[in-house]
Design a protein around this nucleic acid. Structure first.
Lengths: 209, 209
DNA sequence: TAGATTGTTAATCGATTAACAATC
DNA sequence: TAGATTGTTAATCGATTAACAATC
């Protein structure tokens, strides 16, 4: 389907979704692109262009119905189609991601936690037991996760991702420094690079103002 | 200084920095833009354009000296100029960030941890004690942190950021959904929005391939 | 010197903004 | 109907890529 939508547009959708939700919580039912643009710090033009990539959700002279628009964005993002996800690496970061993230409202269902450290195996985190990385193969064959969350170091990520891809994993939420896209060009990867973000902040603190 | 470098360029610098480090670890001493481009999945042209925003670090006919180039990028990013940072919110995420991130190699020094939950106060995380949010004001006046890391919910972020800015905090590493830039346009913010990243992944899984 | 590769200018491509006719 | 605001086309702006002269 629509592989033609630019990633600049896609990356703005979750933010629209958040703002529309807040406006709904405030009891509003409609919003114009101009009002929304002032609220979000964008141009009205950009908002209309973005939304019209997916269809005409507004009405001339009226604006957008909040509920309709938010539902449409949820549908576009595929949030209702829950995709099975497993998380590899239950260190501080893996645990925090498991505890902290509300996967259900973002289009995923966390169904398995894995670690190579045998001392962690069996421990419950939130509602799931930590499993041995030895059982990864069997678990994937049975439960067919579509997505893997990598909270492991680069070398481990390189090794495990090859296995995961052979087991049918199609997407990665990647917290490691392993660059999956260089080797696998048909796999979908979202990188969360804490260090890169921090260094960008460092640059801007040193150079802006 | 150079406020004119586009953010597209800035955001690529940390990745260059990582790749150059790896090449150095492999014992190499020089690299051409073409070789680096193949390794990183970019065009050689882009690499040369990016680097030339900051000066001519290469040599015609030779390429770039790895050590020189990496040192230059570190300098550009301001990694050696350590900026004091405090972290607000020692829940799962705050703890994981404290434990997991190597601030020293990214231009920061974590000097204080804060939480509003009195039961957490006094607990040590890594090498720092969790302090009461009540002592934030005093701590900032004494230690003048330049940066705050927000690992708290939106409402708390809204409240605390106003205080932090009045206390001289110039930059934020923001894990909350509070949009600081809308209200404070002279503050520097790097957002880490887990949910947005996940939803983007959801979209792509539903629409690509 | 000849070969290689940079630094830099010019060309292309894509994304954002502006403008306005369509229409509710 | 008149006013408002979308959907959409055209204009502008910025980022990426290509090309090549400079030079090591």
């Amino acid at each position: 389907m629509n592989n033609s939508i630019s990633s600049s547009v896609i990356k703005r959708l979750p933010r629209y979704y958040r703002f529309l939700g807040e406006l709904q919580n405030q009891g509003l039912t409609r919003i114009s692109s101009r009002e929304l643009s002032e609220m979000m710090g964008l141009t009205a033009s950009q908002i209309r262009q973005d939304l019209n990539c997916f269809g005409g959700f507004g009405q001339q002279g009226y604006g957008y119905n909040l509920s309709v628009l938010r539902t449409e964005i949820a549908r576009i993002l595929g949030i209702n189609n829950q995709k099975g996800a497993i998380l590899i690496g239950m260190g501080n970061l893996g645990k925090a991601v498991t505890m902290h993230i509300n996967f259900e409202t973002k289009g995923f269902k966390l169904i398995g936690l894995f670690d190579s450290k045998e001392s962690l195996v069996g421990q419950m985190v939130k509602t799931l037991p930590i499993r041995s990385i030895q059982s990864l193969d069997e678990f994937c064959r049975e439960n067919r996760p579509e997505v893997a969350i990598l909270c492991i170091p680069k070398d481990a990520a390189e090794e495990i991702s090859a296995e995961l891809i052979s087991l049918g994993v199609k997407g990665f939420w990647n917290f490691s420094h392993y660059d999956l896209t260089l080797k696998y060009d048909d796999v979908i990867v979202e990188n969360m690079h804490f260090g890169d973000s921090l260094m960008t902040l460092s640059y801007r603190l040193n150079n802006e103002k």
